[in-house]
C-alpha cells in the first residue's frame, strides 16, 4: 500500500481510538440529571486527555506497521507534542468543573485530606502526568541521566494512566454505562497486548539474534565507533541514515536502551558487521560504552527511521552535520562510496574545534574515492586555519554549493537549534522544503 494512504489510515485509526469513548458515552448518555454545558465540556476533555495518555505508549511501542508509514522519529515527535495536548486537556478538565462551580478548587490543587478517593486519584494522575512531562521537557536542565529518565518516564506513565482510569471508573458518570466500560476494557486488552509485545515478544526475538562487540575504537571529539558482529545470524539490512536501539545491559529484556544511528556502510554482505558512533555525553556513553570489550554480547533493535538517501533519489546530495550528527551521514557516504555512486555529494561539517572533527581523515580519504567535497567549519579556529569559521550559514552554503543546488536533496543532522536554523536558511536559498530532511534525536 502507498505510504501516504497507509499513514492516513493509521491517523484515522488513532483519532477513532481517542474519540470513540466519547461517542459511546454520548449515545449511552446514562445520566438522569442534566449538567451544565461547561461541565460536559470539562468531562469530555478529561476523557480525551486520558485516552491520549493511554495511547501514548502505542505510539512508541515500535509497531513496525505504523512506524513504516511515518518513521519512528516522526512518531516520537508526535508522541511528545500530543503529550502536551493531553496535559492541557487533563488540567482543563478540573478547571472547567471548578469554574462551573461543580467541584471545589481544593480538589484540584491538593489531592490530600478529606477528599473522596475518586477525586484524589484524578488529581494524583494529573500530577503524575505533569511530572512526567516536566522531566521530559527539562531533563537536561534538571541534569537527569537518560537512563533514569527512561525509568521514571515508564513508571510515571503507568501511574498516570492507572490513576486516571481509577478516577474515571470511581467517579461513575458516563463511565457507569456498560458500553463505556466495555470500550475501556477493550483498550486495556489492546494496550496490554502491545506491552506484552514490547516487553516480551520483541526481546525474545532479539534473544535469538545476538550481536557481539567486534571493535570499540576511540575517535576524535570524544566519540567511539562501536563495531558489532552478528552471532549465528545474517545480521541486519538497513538503509544508510537509519537508526536502531542498542541494548548493552546483558539481556535484551534490559529496560535501558539507546537510539543510535548506524554509521557504517549499508552495503555489507549477510553476516557483515555494523557500526554505531557514540559520543560521550552521559554515564552510559561516557563510562559504560568505553568499557565494552570485544566479545561482549549486545542486542540491536532496528532498523528504524526514514532519514535515508535511499528513500530520496536526487541528482546530488548535500549533507550537513553538526558535531556528532556526522554518524548517519558517514553511513550515507560509505554506502555511496561502496556503490561507486557517481553523483555529486557535498558535506558541510561543523564542529567546535578542528581537533574534534570525528572521522576527518576518513572523510578526506573518501573525497579522493568518490565525487565528494567536504567543507569543514570550525567555531574555534586554531592559528593558521584557512577554512570556514563559525556556524554554517547562508553565505557559507552559497560559497560552496554548485549552480544546480536547488535540485539536490539535503540531509541535516546535528543539534536541534542547528537543524531549525538550517531549515530556514535552506528554504531562504530557494531549496524546496520537500527536499530537506532532518533527523532529530535530542528530543529528550
Amino acid at each position: 500500500m502507498n505510504l501516504i494512504v497507509r499513514g492516513a489510515v493509521w491517523f484515522v485509526v488513532y483519532l477513532f481510538l481517542i474519540l470513540f469513548p466519547l461517542v459511546v458515552a454520548a449515545v449511552a448518555d446514562p445520566l438522569d440529571v442534566p449538567r451544565p454545558f461547561l461541565v460536559e465540556v470539562g468531562v469530555a476533555l478529561g476523557a480525551v486527555g486520558l485516552a491520549i495518555t493511554a495511547f501514548q505508549f502505542a505510539l512508541v511501542s515500535r509497531t513496525r506497521a505504523a512506524a513504516a508509514a511515518f518513521g519512528e522519529d516522526a512518531l516520537l515527535q508526535f508522541h511528545r507534542q500530543i503529550g502536551l495536548v493531553a496535559l492541557a486537556c487533563v488540567w482543563l478538565h478540573p478547571l472547567l468543573l471548578v469554574v462551573a462551580d461543580f467541584a471545589p478548587l481544593g480538589w484540584m490543587i491538593a489531592p490530600v485530606g478529606d477528599i473522596p478517593w475518586a477525586a484524589q486519584s484524578g488529581t494524583l494522575s494529573a500530577y503524575a502526568l505533569t511530572g512526567l512531562i516536566a522531566l521530559s521537557v527539562w531533563r537536561r536542565r534538571l541534569r537527569l541521566a537518560y537512563e533514569w529518565w527512561q525509568a521514571t518516564h515508564a513508571l510515571l506513565a503507568i501511574t498516570a494512566v492507572a490513576l486516571g482510569a481509577i478516577h474515571m471508573l470511581e467517579m461513575g458518570g458516563y463511565a457507569g454505562a456498560p458500553g463505556v466500560r466495555m470500550v475501556w476494557a477493550a483498550y486495556l486488552v489492546l494496550l496490554g497486548g502491545l506491552a506484552v509485545n514490547y516487553r516480551l515478544v520483541r526481546p525474545l526475538r532479539m534473544l535469538r539474534r545476538p550481536w557481539e562487540v567486534a571493535r570499540n575504537v576511540e575517535e576524535r571529539g570524544g566519540a567511539r565507533t562501536l563495531v558489532l558482529r552478528p552471532v549465528g545470524h545474517p545480521g541486519m539490512a538497513f538503509q544508510p541514515g537509519q537508526f536502531a536501539w542498542l541494548i548493552t545491559g546483558g539481556t535484551p529484556f534490559a529496560l535501558e536502551q539507546h537510539p543510535l544511528s548506524f554509521s557504517s556502510s549499508a552495503e555489507t554482505p549477510p553476516g557483515g558487521e555494523v557500526a554505531f558512533t557514540i559520543k560521550a555525553v552521559g554515564d552510559w556513553s561516557g563510562t559504560r560504552v568505553p568499557a565494552l570489550q570485544p566479545g561482549r554480547r549486545v542486542w540491536v533493535d532496528g532498523p528504524y527511521g526514514v532519514f535515508s538517501v535511499d528513500r530520496e533519489e536526487g541528482p546530488g546530495y548535500v549533507l550537513i552535520a553538526g558535531g556528532s550528527g556526522i554518524a548517519p551521514l558517514r553511513s550515507m557516504l560509505l554506502t555511496l562510496a561502496a556503490r561507486e555512486d557517481v553523483r555529486p555529494v557535498l558535506l558541510f561539517y561543523g564542529n567546535r574545534r578542528w581537533e574534534a572533527m570525528t572521522y576527518r581523515e576518513e572523510l578526506d580519504a573518501l573525497a579522493r574515492r568518490m565525487n565528494l567535497t567536504v567543507v569543514y567549519a570550525v567555531e574555534e579556529p586554531h592559528p593558521g586555519w584557512t577554512g570556514e569559521v563559525g556556524y554554517i550559514d547562508a553565505a557559507m552554503l552559497r560559497r560552496h554549493l554548485p549552480k544546480q543546488f536547488r535540485r539536490f536533496r539535503y540531509f541535516v543532522c546535528g543539534p536541534g537549534a542547528m537543524m531549525d536554523a538550517m531549515e530556514g536558511i535552506l528554504t531562504g536559498l530557494g531549496v524546496p522544503r520537500t527536499q530537506v530532511f532532518t533527523e532529530r534525536f535530542d528530543m529528550v
Partner: peptide
C-alpha cells in the same frame, strides 16, 4: 521537513479534539 508537518498535524488534532468535546457537550446538554 517532516517535523514541521508533524507540528501542524498536532495542532489540527488538538483543534479537532476541542471541537469534538464541544459537540459532545452540546449533544448531551438539553
Amino acid at each position: 521537513m517532516h517535523h514541521v508537518i508533524v507540528t501542524r498535524v498536532v495542532w489540527f488534532v488538538a483543534a479537532l479534539l476541542g471541537l469534538a468535546c464541544t459537540l459532545f457537550a452540546m449533544g448531551v446538554t438539553p
